[in-house]
Computed example of a mutant assay.
Amino acid sequence: MIQIGLTGWGDHPDLYVSSAKEKLQDYSAHFPVVELDASFYAIQPIKNSLKWIKETPADFQFVVKAYQGITGHLRGDFPFESTTEMFELYRKSIMPFKEAGKLAMVLVQFPPWFRCETENVTYLRKVREELKDFDVVIEFRHQSWYAPEYQQSTVQFLRSHQFHHSVCDEPQAGEGSIPLVPIATSDKVLIRLHGRNTYGWINHGNKEKWREVRYLYDYNKEELTYIKSICEQLHEQAKDVILLFNNNSGGHAANNAKTFQQMLGVKFDGLAPKQLDLFEEDF
């Protein structure tokens, strides 16, 4: 099965018909899966998880990002008594998704400074143990994991520890970006499309608006054709492929995803009823 979605449901005005409070319901009329980003910035109250579960169709899936304290992005004070408490609270926050059958996977996205080193390999083992009851997908951001002398070992490590692999399309801008490595390490694989804005990837500019710069990109037909070939190649390796567009800054993600869906010729069953606006243009 190939599922297509976007990272987050709050930045796609072309999809909304209802009020601002019903963006997730509107989103779920178009796509069967979404990446939940709020869980990266803070461990979410269980009431939020239950709310999002209730607002989506029975077969809808969430790719839930790991909390930034887990991935090493956290800056400032550590708001927990211990890492044990942090992992315990995070597990409790995502358990409702699993119990509802709506947890596609937990996305553990490491930062660009997380290198292929012994201490980090050890930490990956800790993550696997702490999240042993969940499907976990690993995304690296440092090229060392895919260096010629380490790539085979990286792939084998992911396989042997039952980690899914996050395959990324992103600007090739030095050590802080990874090559596209179309290898599945399990029966599921995640493809994340970050755009190809090399200048924005390197030059973040205003720290408050770095996301707006980094993910400003509109994939063209030729690029989507290439990604289609990668998607099909990965589908031969894995039963389930989840593909997420993360080029949200300029509002391009939804249209790129719709175009890509048409190119694949796939239809999604079990979506929420679409509330058509009188003046809405069909995608």
Score class of each variant (00 low, 15 high):
Q3D: 03
I4G: 01
G5K: 02
G5E: 02
L6F: 06
T7W: 02
T7R: 09
T7G: 10
T7Y: 01
W9L: 07
P13M: 05
P13G: 06
D14P: 00
A20S: 06
A20R: 09
K21G: 04
E22W: 00
E22L: 01
L24P: 00
Q25W: 00
D26V: 00
S28V: 01
S28I: 02
A29L: 07
V33I: 15
L36A: 05
S39I: 01
A42R: 15
A42Q: 14
Q44G: 07
I46T: 15
K47Q: 15
K51I: 00
K51A: 08
K51Q: 09
W52G: 01
E55F: 01
T56H: 07
A58H: 13
A58D: 14
A58P: 05
Q61I: 02
K65D: 02
L74P: 05
L74T: 08
R75P: 01
G76N: 10
E81W: 05
M86E: 12
L89T: 05
R91I: 01
K92Q: 13
S93V: 04
S93I: 03
P96N: 04
E99Q: 15
E99P: 05
A100R: 14
G101A: 13
G101D: 12
K102E: 10
L107W: 08
L107C: 08
Q109A: 10
P111M: 12
P111Y: 13
W113Q: 13
F114D: 12
C116Y: 15
T118S: 14
N120S: 01
L124Y: 00
K126R: 03
R128Q: 08
R128M: 05
E130I: 06
L131K: 05
K132N: 12
D133K: 08
D133F: 03
V137Y: 08
I138S: 10
I138W: 09
E139V: 09
E139D: 11
F140S: 10
Q143H: 12
S144G: 06
S144N: 04
W145H: 06
Y146V: 09
Y146D: 06
E149K: 15
Y150D: 11
Q151G: 03
Q152N: 13
V155W: 03
Q156S: 14
L158N: 07
S160A: 10
F163L: 12
F163C: 10
H164R: 11
C168D: 07
D169L: 14
D169K: 12
E170T: 11
Q172L: 14
A173D: 06
G174L: 10
G176W: 11
S177R: 09
I178V: 15
I178M: 12
P182K: 07
T185Q: 08
S186D: 13
S186V: 04
S186C: 07
L190M: 09
R192I: 03
L193E: 02
H194Y: 05
Y199V: 03
N203G: 00
K207I: 07
K209R: 15
K209L: 15
R211I: 03
R211F: 08
Y215Q: 07
Y215W: 08
Y217L: 09
N220K: 11
T225I: 03
Y226R: 11
I227P: 02
I227L: 12
K228G: 01
S229D: 12
E232M: 08
H235F: 02
E236C: 09
E236R: 14
A238R: 06
L244S: 04
N247I: 06
G251L: 07
F260V: 03
L264H: 08
V266K: 10
K267Q: 12
F268L: 03
G270N: 05
A272E: 03
Q275A: 10
F283Y: 04
